[in-house]
């Protein structure tokens, strides 16, 4: 019996080790593929045009342009807009769920929020076109609402379940003794939450925000449908935007293989990959720093 248990332990350990290394290998494989194909674009496109150009128009009538800046700016514009909405709302909801919500409300709210994460992005995009965009147009007196604000609102909705669920877990993980000590000193529940529980849960909350950020960064179908996809450089939240993901999704389908345009889309993919890698590494660093501070 003992040997069997030992063997099972060993097997499971090896299995999960292989799975872990495999995901690392796949990650590097994807990046290598993006880089390998993306680099070929620079045979015909000046790196300075690609990285500094503000106009992305590879399907131009006579002179194609491959400036990635407007795509990066568009992506960051709607993602940061989404975070401005989703982060305060998400952390607030998580704190309410973890600390205040009566059991009867919690039993209803929690599954409802988790269900939200399951709505297909194409459905969110459709709601964006038919409901949210006309509403934005009416409220702000615009002709139409197919703009960055629309994208931000929809992405905020899509990032919320992630932020709420992970933050709630982080807040719950704060030892009860922390709160008890705070209450013993005469602090109100609000002060306890703000000055004790939330700071103690900060590393987990940061991870939640970064996960939500990553979700919004990579979202494709919703922004492709609801933000207008214009090529013009956006001047703010009321202008249509074309994100990196939307550009790849729209253009790759009909681009002839082994053309400059084809390779340029891989280069865009590589840049997007690097951005999300930086976001992940940064969040990991931040989370670790705050964790040490707490200990």
């Amino acid at each position: 019996m003992k040997i069997n248990v030992y063997l099972a332990d060993r097997l499971a350990s090896i299995l999960f080790q292989v799975a872990g290394w495999l995901s690392v290998a796949i990650l590097f494989g994807i990046f290598a593929l993006l880089l390998f194909n993306g680099v070929k674009a620079f045979a015909h496109v000046q790196p300075s045009e690609f990285f500094l150009g503000t106009i992305w128009n590879p399907a131009a009538y006579d002179r194609p342009q491959y400036g990635i800046i407007s795509l990066i700016f568009s992506t960051l514009l709607i993602t940061s807009g989404a975070m401005l909405i989703a982060v305060p709302l998400g952390i607030g909801t998580a704190a309410y769920l973890a600390e205040m919500a009566p059991a009867s409300v919690y039993r209803f709210l929690k599954p409802a929020i988790e269900l939200f994460a399951g709505i297909p992005s194409v459905a969110v995009g459709f709601i964006g076109i038919t409901v949210v965009a006309p509403a934005i147009a009416r409220i702000f007196g615009l002709n139409n609402g197919l703009n960055a604000l629309n994208g931000s609102l929809l992405l905020a909705i899509m990032a919320l379940p992630t932020i709420i669920t992970v933050s709630e877990d982080a807040i719950r993980a704060v030892p009860t003794t922390f709160r008890e000590a705070s209450f013993a000193l005469g602090a109100s529940p609000w002060v306890t939450l703000r000055r004790v529980t939330l700071p103690a849960a900060l590393s987990g909350i940061l991870a939640a925000v970064m996960l939500g950020f990553g979700r919004a960064l990579g979202e494709t179908m919703t922004v492709l449908m609801a933000t207008g996809n214009a090529l013009a450089f956006p001047n703010g939240f009321f202008d249509p935007v074309r994100t990196m993901t939307a550009a790849i999704a729209i253009e790759l389908g009909e681009t002839a293989r082994d053309t400059t345009h084809y390779y340029a889309l891989f280069a865009v993919g590589a840049v997007l990959f690097v951005i999300s890698l930086v976001v992940n590494v940064l969040s990991e660093r931040l989370a670790r720093r705050f964790r040490y501070k707490n200990e």
């Binding site: 131009a60 038919t130 197919l146 449908m225 013009a232």
Partner: peptide
């Protein structure tokens, strides 16, 4: 010649109609 850069590029015919109906 090229389209104006402000052209909103929609995902399908139905979406063009949907958008213009409210714009």
């Amino acid at each position: 010649a090229d389209y104006a850069a402000s052209l909103k590029q929609m995902n399908g015919t139905a979406q063009i109609v949907e958008a213009i109906a409210t714009d």
